[in-house]
Every structure is written in C-alpha cells, then in structure tokens.
Simulated scan of single mutants.
Amino acid sequence: MTVEAWTLLPSLPKVASRDAVAAEQEGWTGVMLADSQNLAAELVVEMAMCAARTSRIRVSPGVTNSVTRHPAVLAGAMATLQAESSGRISVDIGRGDSSLAHLGFAPMGVKPFQRYVTTLRAYLRGEEVDFDPGFMPSGVRPLHTIDLGKAPGMSRLGWLRGDQPAVPVNVAATGPKMIAFGAVAADGVSLSVGADPARIAAAISAAREAREAAGLDPESLVVGAYLNVAVHDDLATAAQITSGKLASFTRFSVMHGSVTGFATEADRAELARFGGTYDMTAHGRADAQHTQGLSLEFMSRNAVIGDSKTVLERLWELRGLGVSRFILTEDFSRTGVAGESHRQLVEEVLPELLRWS
C-alpha cells in the first residue's frame, strides 16, 4: 500500500498557505489544518488558500468535527474544494475537542457521530438524504409547519457533478468503538493512540477484526496514525520540543474519565493521573503546566523522538504493523531547536519514509 506522509500546519491567516507551499517543496504528501474556530483561523478558507497556492499537495482537516457544521454544509464545502483543487481534498473527522470545549460542550456521543459520518458520506456521493432534525439547533421548526406550494422531500447536493472524485473520509479514532466504526464505515481510520507499537498493533488488530466481521477485506484498510515527532540527538530535548502537541493527543486516551485506546499497563497509571490536569486554555502549548505530568519514559514510547536514525527505525516498525498514512505532528515553531528538528525531519527522514511504498 502506498505510503503517505502528512504534516500538520498552524491554521493561521497567511501562515497556513505559506507553510503549505513550503511543504509541497519539501515533498510531503499532504497538509492538515485544525478545525477549532476559537484557536485557529476558519478551516475552509485556509484550506482553499492552501489549495490555491499549491499544485500537487493534498489538503485535509486534521481534524474537523461532527457538531459545528451541518453534514450538508461540511460536505458542500469539501466537495467544492475537491472540484477547485482537481481532486486533492480529503477529510479527517472526529467527535470534537477544543472546537467544542471553547463553546462549552463535550465531544459528540459515539452513536450520533456515526450517524453524522454516514450522512456526510452520502452527501459527498451525491445521494439523497432524509431530513434529520438531530443535526439542527433547537428552536428551528420543521419545514412542514409553514405553507409552501411545493417543498423538497429529501436533501442532496444538487450541484455535485457525477464525474467528480468522491472526497475520502477518514475517522480519527482512539477508543475501540470509534476504531471499529471507522474501519467499516469510512475510507480509512486515523489512529490517535500514541506511537507505542503495542498500542498501534492492538488498534489495527481491532480495526481489521471489525472489517472481517462486516465481510470486508481486512488487508485493504487504509490505516493512518497521528504521531508526535521531534528529531534531536538528545532525547530530553526532543521530548521537550514535542511536549505540547503530545500532551494534547495524549488527552484523547483519558478525556472521558477512564483510560481507553488500548493503553498498555505501563501507561494506564500515568494516563489516569494526567487526565484531570489538562488545561484547555493552554491547548497544544509546550509551556503548559500539564506537560510536566508526562514522564520522559512515557514520552519516549508515545512520541517518535530521537536522532534521525532512531526516528526512522520507529516509523519503519509502525509501517510493518500496517500504518501507511503517517500524520507527523511537530512543534509549529520553525526557529531554534524546533527549526533544526524540522530540518532534519525533512532532509533525513521524509525522503526515506516516502520510499517505503
């Protein structure tokens, strides 16, 4: 299966598209932008700017959510970008995190999320979709309560061309229910369970079992993994570079009050301690107090850190387990030690990674 290398970019005006141009020159397969309206610029606008300023690289939310946009609105936006970019768009979607926290809400429940993704994919295929009041805010009346000569009986993207490539949808998942759903009902699953090979292997095994139970080929599943990466000869320095982003992704394993995501016994106690200390007002920041709650030993297993040789060996091991879509998350800074880490990643790791197809 073709190996893809994606990089997560800061979603800021003028910055995201500038970095997308640089990422295309560096050789990345694709770029991802966070969808978090209070912490980042508007996703669709920045995706459009990235696509407009590049010609080859793919563009995706990393990740969008199932709450802040009606599935028809999200599908319409992504399908439009797909048409304008000549087929370079994909979607990673999850239940919501910082985007909802800054509106005062917790992530969407698993079953409503599953309904959302199923509906989203139907819209993206140009299919007719039943009206679903569950996707609308309270206080909006059903259409049949007003007088019309003739009203639509179903919903669909009527402008969508039949020959346009469908937008791939990948479910960003940590827990077993989400992993199993994504493996069966989406184009791929993007694991957010850290970088420990034991956790990755358990998650992939669960995904393949779900596909087999559904009568699907388990080997055809596209498996992605969000991996926090820093390249530096000194392990402690590498850990510090990636600490802010790693803390954000680590929280997904304990955000609902109990440890999930196939955590190893070695990690369960540390994850349980970490869960209640996370400061959402310092989301993703390396200087956040909650980063101090992660030991170097934990970070060395759950992030991909070390010198370039070590990083390549770690990624190769995950490739052997079945990961083909590597979503490498770095510190957004391109200065100081973070800048040197990025340079080594691009020059010494990325070219080899892309040869593993």
Results as ranks from 00 to 15, higher is better:
residue 160 L to K: 02
residue 132 D to I: 03
residue 153 G to S: 13
residue 26 E to Y: 11
residue 110 V to W: 04
residue 296 L to H: 02
residue 139 G to A: 04
residue 263 A to G: 07
residue 38 N to K: 15
residue 223 V to I: 08
residue 28 W to Q: 02
residue 48 A to H: 08
residue 148 L to F: 13
residue 85 S to Q: 12
residue 345 L to D: 03
residue 24 E to L: 05
residue 218 P to V: 02
residue 42 E to C: 11
residue 273 R to T: 12
residue 177 K to W: 12
residue 355 R to G: 10
residue 273 R to F: 11
residue 282 A to F: 13
residue 256 H to R: 13
residue 71 P to A: 09
residue 65 N to W: 09
residue 302 N to D: 14
residue 56 R to N: 12
residue 276 G to M: 00
residue 45 V to F: 11
residue 97 D to I: 04
residue 321 L to H: 10
residue 136 M to W: 15
residue 28 W to T: 01
residue 126 G to Y: 07
residue 78 M to R: 04
residue 259 V to H: 08
residue 132 D to P: 02
residue 33 L to Y: 01
residue 330 E to H: 11
residue 227 L to I: 07
residue 181 F to P: 09
residue 262 F to M: 09
residue 131 F to W: 08
residue 112 P to V: 11
residue 227 L to Y: 02
residue 333 S to T: 03
residue 324 S to G: 09
residue 211 R to Q: 05
residue 247 A to L: 06
residue 43 L to S: 00
residue 310 T to E: 15
residue 271 L to M: 08
residue 218 P to D: 01
residue 192 S to M: 13
residue 131 F to S: 06
residue 29 T to K: 13
residue 187 D to M: 10
residue 145 T to M: 14
residue 80 T to Q: 07
residue 199 R to D: 08
residue 335 T to N: 06
residue 57 I to S: 01
residue 61 P to I: 05
residue 210 A to N: 07
residue 15 V to D: 09
residue 37 Q to W: 15
residue 33 L to K: 00
residue 268 R to D: 01
residue 180 A to D: 04
residue 168 P to L: 11
residue 47 M to W: 00
residue 354 L to Y: 12
residue 280 M to L: 15
residue 258 S to W: 12
residue 70 H to M: 10
residue 147 D to V: 15
residue 265 E to W: 09
residue 84 E to C: 12
residue 137 P to T: 10
residue 175 G to H: 14
residue 87 G to M: 11
residue 61 P to R: 03
residue 112 P to Q: 13
residue 111 K to N: 12
residue 240 Q to C: 00
residue 10 P to R: 00
residue 201 A to H: 13
residue 94 G to S: 12
residue 236 A to D: 14
residue 315 L to D: 03
residue 39 L to M: 15
residue 356 W to S: 14
residue 322 G to M: 05
residue 21 V to C: 06
residue 346 V to G: 00
residue 279 D to Q: 15
residue 202 A to R: 05
residue 186 A to W: 13
residue 283 H to I: 01
residue 156 R to I: 01
residue 266 A to S: 10
residue 58 R to Q: 05
residue 254 V to Y: 04
residue 337 V to F: 03
residue 244 G to W: 02
residue 59 V to R: 06
residue 353 L to N: 02
residue 193 V to N: 03
residue 202 A to G: 01
residue 134 G to Q: 03
residue 130 D to K: 15
residue 339 G to E: 04
residue 40 A to K: 13
residue 336 G to V: 03
residue 68 T to G: 05
residue 303 A to Y: 11
residue 324 S to T: 12
residue 62 G to K: 02
residue 274 F to Y: 15
residue 178 M to N: 15
residue 84 E to P: 03
residue 189 V to S: 06
